[in-house]
Simulated scan of single mutants.
Amino acid sequence: LQWIVQMVITEAKQLLENSDLSIKEIAARLNFPTQSFFGKYFKQYVGVSPKEYRNH
């Protein structure tokens, strides 16, 4: 399970850093049911929201 989490978070970080996709589009691309669920998942493992991560 930890390996899967790491792969999803790594992919999310790459998309946030290197694409112009919206957070909603990234959530959909990574097969999250909602943008809200993706945001909570990301923040749980990274410590900041996807928006905060992208802005830094």
Rank of each mutant, 00 (worst) to 15 (best):
V48T: 11
A27T: 03
L30S: 06
S22N: 09
R29I: 03
R54S: 03
I26Y: 00
Q35D: 12
F32D: 05
I4L: 15
I23P: 00
V46N: 01
Q35P: 07
S19V: 09
P33K: 13
S36R: 11
E17G: 05
P33L: 06
Q44R: 13
R29N: 10
N31Y: 11
K43A: 11
S36H: 11
I26N: 00
K43I: 04
E17H: 06
Y41R: 05
F37I: 07
G47F: 03
F38A: 00
F32K: 04
M7V: 15
L21Y: 11
Q35M: 12
N18M: 08
S36P: 00
K24W: 08
F32Y: 10
G39W: 03
V8M: 10
Y53V: 06
A12Q: 00
T10V: 10
Y45V: 06
F38K: 00
I26D: 00
Q6M: 11
I26S: 00
Q44V: 08
N55A: 13
I4V: 10
L21H: 07
N31H: 14
E25F: 08
S22W: 04
G39E: 09
W3K: 15
F32N: 02
Q6V: 11
A28I: 05
L15T: 02
W3P: 01
T34E: 04
H56N: 15
K51Q: 13
P50R: 03
D20H: 13
K43L: 07
W3H: 14
Y41D: 05
